[in-house]
Write a protein that binds this DNA or RNA. Structure first.
Lengths: 209, 209
DNA sequence: TCATTCAGTAAACAACTGTTTGCCGACTTT
DNA sequence: AAAGTCGGCAAACAGTTGTTTACTGAATGA
């Protein structure tokens, strides 16, 4: 689909990427609301004025980061949920997918966790919107499982909300674990799996009207 | 227990309170990492240098806010969990307590949600520590319930972790709802209750070794 | 009563901030 | 090859920032 941009567009996108990467790097240890334009351009190797060729605001850059942060996760989880296997296997795969996603996109996930309730309204709104859309997707995927075929739409939303919330907090827990210590990661994964198993039991005995 | 402080100590505490309140007010719309000493002292009606008579840092002020933010919640929930009544009643009371706590301590709760994954390490550590302690308390309270008398320590921790995480995200959801619209609050409460009921079902059928 | 303590102040410091301006020079289109 | 587009830059703007300094004056304790 990439239409082989002209040299000019390519260079511009490269600069834009540099700005996004610089932001992502700096946001590892601070909040978006304390980030500075000069700070970002400095670590991106660009003059301060150049920033405004790409973004209106730092909020604008933040919203762009939200979009690319959740892009990859969307499909992965829904694919797992639509996959075959019993509940136990789905749980194992889900937790493994989350763990890998955090490992491979640490900075993005940290950014999301940090700004989800952060002080920048547009970014907060963008994250909430993406997460809501994700919840709807999960609800749809759950609806196709035979286990919850007879569930009402409202109950499916309730359940998918619980799952998404659990997924987010599991990701946050993985973040907290130091990246070089796999035993902590294993402990978090084991707890997450047990919690999902308990929820699964609840599902099994949920009274369908 | 208040030992009728001398006039001097009383005035100092009053100023300290003014600083904490100013911080809390400003943190409603921004992050701790972007808060300024001058900003705080200005809205507290004090000279910038005065700040340092009370706190070393803004991080220091942040940690103080963490402590007073979680002080009240501790007892409330554990009291509910240790109370009488069937599972359904405990769920109703729990959600009601959380809703009221958010209503009455909006600024504190917002601060906790915002800084839990925020950019200021000492504050993040303080919140994590308090929340861990809270999880242990909940696990102990759950252990006394007949429903989970035969559970292992590890499983109790797993379950209380799930409960605390759910409580936190419910509180965050209440925060998002506009304070003047009680119908949104009711919707969130209903969802939270349903999710707790589902977890309760899972508990009931959890295999005890 | 007199000396001491100490919360709060005003002023100064150098360093930093976001944003606008006019400009240059490389790419693009005609 | 000429004209136009436009990403990036240096410089300047008026603010803001954290922190230290020496000080004042009221509460304290002898």
């Amino acid at each position: 689909m990439s239409h082989t941009l002209g040299v000019r567009q390519a260079q511009k996108q490269q600069s834009r990427r540099a700005l996004l990467d610089a932001g992502l790097l700096l946001l590892e240890h601070q909040n978006l609301s304390s980030l500075g334009v000069r700070e970002v351009t400095r670590t991106a190797g660009m003059s301060p004025a150049g920033f405004y060729r790409h973004f209106r605001d730092l909020d604008d850059l933040g919203v762009a980061l939200v979009e690319e942060s959740l892009a990859s996760l969307h499909g992965m989880i829904t694919a797992v949920l639509a996959g075959e296997g019993d509940a136990e296997q789905l749980i194992d795969r889900t937790v493994e997918v989350v763990a890998r996603h955090v490992r491979e996109h640490r900075a993005h996930v940290r950014f999301l966790a940090r700004e989800r309730h952060g002080g920048v309204q547009p970014v907060r709104a963008a994250i909430t919107a993406e997460l809501d859309a994700f919840t709807v997707e999960v609800a749809a995927a759950l609806g196709t499982q035979e286990q919850s075929a007879a569930w009402s739409q409202a109950d499916l939303r309730m359940l998918s909300g619980l799952y998404v919330e659990h997924l987010v907090s599991t990701a946050a827990a993985f973040l907290e674990a130091p990246g070089d210590q796999p035993e902590a990661e294993q402990r978090i994964a084991a707890t997450a799996r047990a919690q999902l198993r308990l929820i699964s039991l609840g599902r099994l005995h949920w009274p369908t009207a």
